[in-house]
């Protein structure tokens, strides 16, 4: 069964902005799914529609086969959401915020308090339970919202950029928390514009840009599909003529540095032979960092081109 099934979702805001333009996604139960896209892509809008914060223009959404329009109470019971922006009452105590949320899902106070202790402990907030929410640090506020989202033990947890503004160490902690949660059976959907995060956590990724899904496949496939390896080479003397080779792109950065982008299917030693023929001495060679970041930009650029080509027709 799909944890989430979206068909032809569109959203045009009152000001005319078309934030979502016909998105269809199906996310199987128990998966860890990433919705990856730059700012303004429409991620928050989609989550808003799923969680009843934004009114859709058209389309259909089902949560574990429950239509959010027809069986809204059952559907909502299955979702927990961690929004992008803080949205709790800052003067309330941490424990009250979490226990109240359980109340909105019909969980009696006694059971709610049990769950609250469980999740506040797991998220390292138990010691802060009697403090006003405004006194928490940014990372703690985010974790408070995670505890709040989990309090009714939803089968589907949706997180909108959960690690934005969270420092590296805490980000790792949050990742392992989410991974454990997923292993114990909770379906997780996470939006992010950090590739590293999606690659690390998600088995499947949908890439969204300008309100459209431009890629939706397993993380591995996405990486393979676009896997170009990039190398930076320090060379002894300026390169006079670029050697020609299929699947290989050489950029001269300066007299002693060149960048090589090589398709995965191509052979590195072939390239070395060609360089040798040009009498180029390689002093050192390193992998270019942020390979995935590059891939991402690549995807977005392709999407853009595709769309513009479509327009010209």
């Amino acid at each position: 069964m799909d944890a989430l099934n979206i068909e032809n979702l569109t959203k045009t805001y009152a000001n005319g902005v078309e934030a979502v333009k016909g998105v269809s996604i199906s996310i199987p139960e128990r998966s860890f799914y990433g919705l990856l896209g730059p700012n303004g892509a429409g991620k928050t809008t989609i989550i808003g529609i799923i969680t009843d914060m934004v009114v859709k223009t058209s389309g259909r959404i089902k949560i574990f086969d429950k239509d959010i329009d027809k069986e809204f109470s059952d559907a909502k019971q299955l979702i927990g959401v961690v929004p992008q922006e803080m949205n709790f009452a800052i003067f309330e105590k941490v424990i009250d915020i979490v226990v109240q949320q359980a109340g909105y899902y019909g969980i009696a106070k006694k059971d709610a308090e049990k769950n609250a202790e469980k999740y506040l402990r797991q998220l390292g907030l138990w010691d802060k339970r009697d403090e006003q929410a405004k006194s928490l640090s940014g990372g703690m506020k985010r974790r408070l919202m995670i505890a709040r989202a989990l309090i009714h033990e939803p089968k589907l947890l949706i997180l909108d950029e959960p690690t934005a503004g969270v420092d590296v160490e805490l980000r790792r902690d949050m990742w392992s928390f989410l991974t454990r949660l997923n292993k114990s059976g909770t379906t997780i959907i996470l939006t992010t514009h950090y590739l590293e995060e999606a690659e690390h956590l998600c088995k499947r990724i949908a890439i969204i840009n300008k309100g459209m899904i431009i890629e939706d496949s397993s993380t591995k496939e996405i990486i393979n599909k676009l896997d170009k390896q990039s190398y930076i080479l320090d060379i002894a003397s300026p390169m006079k003529k670029k050697p020609e080779m299929k699947g290989c792109n050489i950029t001269i950065i300066d007299d002693t540095t060149i960048e090589i982008e090589l398709d995965k299917s191509q052979n590195l030693s072939e390239l070395m032979r060609l360089l040798d023929k040009e009498k180029i001495t390689i002093l050192s060679m390193r992998n270019k960092a942020n390979r995935l970041e590059e891939m991402f930009i690549d995807l977005i650029e392709n999407g853009k081109e595709g769309k513009e080509k479509g327009k010209r027709k």
Binding site: N87, F88, A89, Q100, Q101, Y104, Y105
Partner: peptide, 18 residues
Amino acid sequence: FLSKFQRSIEEMIVSPTP
């Protein structure tokens, strides 16, 4: 108004509370 302003009203809106 305060819960709208602080957006804590969203806590209720996302829940099944009618």
